[in-house]
Amino acid sequence: MNEAALLAKKVTAKDYASDQEVRWCPGCGDYAIVRAVQRTLAELDAPMDETVFVSGIGCASRFPYYMATYGFHTIHGRAPAIASGLKLAKPDLDVWVISGDGDALSIGGNHLMHLLRRNVDLQFLLFNNEIYGLTKGQASPTSRVGTRSPSTPLGSVDRPISATQFALGAGARFVARGVDTDQKRLPDILKRAHAHKGTSFVEIYQNCIVYNDGVFGTFTDKPVADDSQLRLAHGEPMIFGKERDKGIRLDTDTLSLEVVTIGENGVTEDDILVHDETNRTVATLLAAMEPPTLPVALGVLYCDPALSYEAAVRDQMTAARQSGKAADLNALLRSGHTWTVEG
């Protein structure tokens, strides 16, 4: 192939895979996610040398080793802090943080909160499998009450935290949700996350085949998926179901969401809530929806961009450079009171 042909050659998902052997358990949902991310990068034609994956500790955090981009596998829970420093130092880099439910919401919960409120421009992917995998199956902060595990033999008694509600509460400007095996929609969600300036928070339901197999089956299994998933699209009515006859209506008396059937009890399409992804209040209600009474909301729940953190920091530095005197170190050392001792 000549040079022009090489240049013209479209990058493929495979080009984003590193030469390292993938060491997740066979059947792990992480395989599907890494595939989706590689596909997304290929479709975006993302420059390999400008892309960085930063992770903490846990099964998900091995992710950077499998990417042919730059990568930094750091310490438990701290990836948001390391990524923040990296973005402040090199704002032009395209940074992805890969985390799990324990990494992001337990040991690293504080960092995630501050990453979101600051709105550092990066993509934060939280692989939620509701269990600690790498340490062999203990209950995690997203495990449901009653989860039996080596550390909770009688069932866990702690109530789980909702990742998306946490993110919205912390001030996230972009919150989305996807499913590991949903190769059709996950890359689209990732592309939206990538396009958003600021912290893009994406929760991905990820099946742990060894310690928590099928935990999301009530809404991800094929036979039930259509009736238990609400796939959001901005400006579209919130209609779902195999027959596309169910919808979400806002009960204005209780300020809560309810499922209604179009054509029943006088309900028409006009009664169905239209998704406005800039509406934080409705996003919070969507994030809280749970089966069996309500479907699980997937897609972009909330997107309302604001100035990103590193841009604000750089703006201040630029202003300081322009307004102040020249950054002369000798002048700085001689600023304020000085005196001369004669020889």
Partner: peptide, 22 residues
């Protein structure tokens, strides 16, 4: 660039991230 971090750990980690970035 000064960064008042959320805690001591984030402070050192941000500095490590910055060094990683050059």
């Amino acid at each position: 660039v000064t960064f008042q971090a959320e805690d001591e750990i984030a402070a050192v980690c941000s500095a490590i991230g910055a060094s990683y970035g050059g």
